[in-house]
């Protein structure tokens, strides 16, 4: 418990906030890695998931990607890549993106899949183009699940960006790695608390956004509509949508 107090004392000591090895610059770096990894993954995963969800083709691809990527030990993959590329920002970003693609893909795909096919059929029958169906029917209705994927991806990336501290970069994980290397467990614990706090804050924020984007008319309490009946958990849905954890 003394260790815990010491760790909090470290975090709240103004001397540790700024400066080259301070909390703030490392937080900024951590957010930078997270943002870059997510951005790359977003550009790949979301359009692909929307395409598969809209056309209904490639469902097996989604489950293959989500379940096999989950098995890859990210930590090992990052070290392996770095041994070939050398230290740098981009190997980390690539690995973080690899990590974030499956939840984004699964979220976008499952979101579209959860939209009532009758609603889409009717939209087409009254003369909406495929783009209009995608952007004004499917995406708005799928947004909560799409954001669920974003939320899951963000958490994983924040957690995994911790190992940046082990491969010559900084981020909040640097406190952890330094602390472990120097057997200074106060600093290690302080780093752990900071990373956990960042993850919790990001998750809370995204959970809030996720609630806000539920389209009016389909929010809870108006469940008489058949179109948003929650789908039964099937093996596939669980395998694709279960939260993943890599770091």
């Amino acid at each position: 418990m003394n260790l815990l107090f010491a760790a909090f004392a470290f975090i709240f000591d103004p001397a540790n906030l700024l400066g080259e090895r301070g909390i703030l610059p490392r937080l900024v770096d951590h957010l930078l890695y997270t943002g870059l990894g997510l951005a790359v993954a977003f550009v790949i995963g979301i359009p692909l998931g929307l395409l598969i969800g809209h056309t209904g083709k490639g469902r097996n691809f989604v489950i293959a990607v989500t379940s096999s990527f989950r098995a890859i030990p990210t930590f090992g993959l990052l070290l392996f890549i770095i041994l070939f590329t050398g230290l740098g920002l981009w190997p980390l970003v690539v690995v973080l993106a690899i990590l974030a693609v499956p939840p984004l893909l699964a979220g976008a795909y499952s979101g579209l899949e959860s939209v009532n096919r009758d609603t889409v059929d009717a939209a087409r029958a009254i003369g909406m183009t495929e783009w209009q169906i995608l952007f004004s029917v499917e995406i708005p209705l799928a947004l909560p699940l799409i954001l669920g994927g974003v939320r899951s991806a963000t958490l994983q990336v924040i957690a995994t960006a911790t190992i940046a501290g082990y491969v010559g970069l900084t981020g909040l994980g640097r406190f952890l790695i330094e602390g472990l290397a120097l057997h200074n467990y106060t600093i290690a614990l302080a780093g752990a608390i900071l990373v956990a706090a960042l993850a919790l804050a990001a998750d809370g924020l995204l959970a809030l956004v996720q609630k806000l984007v539920v389209p009016r008319g389909v929010s809870r309490g108006l469940t008489r509509s058949r179109s948003i009946r929650p789908k039964k958990p099937t093996g596939f849905r669980v395998m694709a949508m279960a939260p993943t954890k890599e770091g």
């Binding site: 009758d118 009717a122 003369g127 909406m128 008319g217 389909v218 179109s227």
Partner: peptide, 28 residues
């Protein structure tokens, strides 16, 4: 798409857009 826009279509379970108000559904 042009053909469908000049033909009215009514289906079982109405097929209304659940995230749009009645008036916007009618005016789609």
């Amino acid at each position: 798409v042009k053909l469908r826009r000049r033909i009215g279509y009514v289906m079982q379970n109405s097929g209304l857009l659940p995230h749009r108000k009645v008036i916007d559904n009618v005016a789609t």
